[in-house]
Each structure stands twice: as C-alpha cells, then as structure tokens.
Amino acid sequence: MKLQETYEVFARQWRKDPLQHVGTVVAPNGDLAAAFARTIYNEEAWVEMQVAARKNFIPAIEIREEGK
C-alpha cells in the first residue's frame, strides 16, 4: 500500500515503569497504527501503550558513528 508510515510503539508493564520501546508498526495513519500495535504486541498485559510517527521525531543528536 502506498502512503504507509512507520510508527514506533512504546508501552509499559507496570505503572511504576517508564514507557519503553517495544517495536514498530507500519500503517497508513495513526488510528490504524494504534489498532495494529495493540493486536501485534499483545504478549504482555500492558498498562499503557502509545504509538508515535517516526516522522515526528525531532533529532536532538543526528545519527553519528558510535563512540565518536
């Protein structure tokens, strides 16, 4: 399908935990990204899950060589 975007999926297992990156989904919009993430990353009873479009990331450090 054209117009697909990559979304990063974040979730946490317990309220005391911070959100952690659990994977990515590819979807044409945010609603579908959320619906897909919820059914694909269903291995844990998460207390929270969020998706964010990768294109909305604002680089604080541009990708560079490791250790430099």
Binding site: P28, N29, D31, L32, A34, A35
Partner: peptide, 17 residues
C-alpha cells in the same frame, strides 16, 4: 474501544485517498 479505532483508521484512509 479499539474496534472503533480500527474502523476509524480505515474510514479516514478510504475517504482521504
């Protein structure tokens, strides 16, 4: 709740494309 989210995602794709 997520059933409607799924429907909504497809509806907006179909109406926008």
């Amino acid at each position: 709740v997520f059933h409607l989210q799924h429907a909504q995602g497809w509806m907006s794709l179909m109406t926008n494309t």
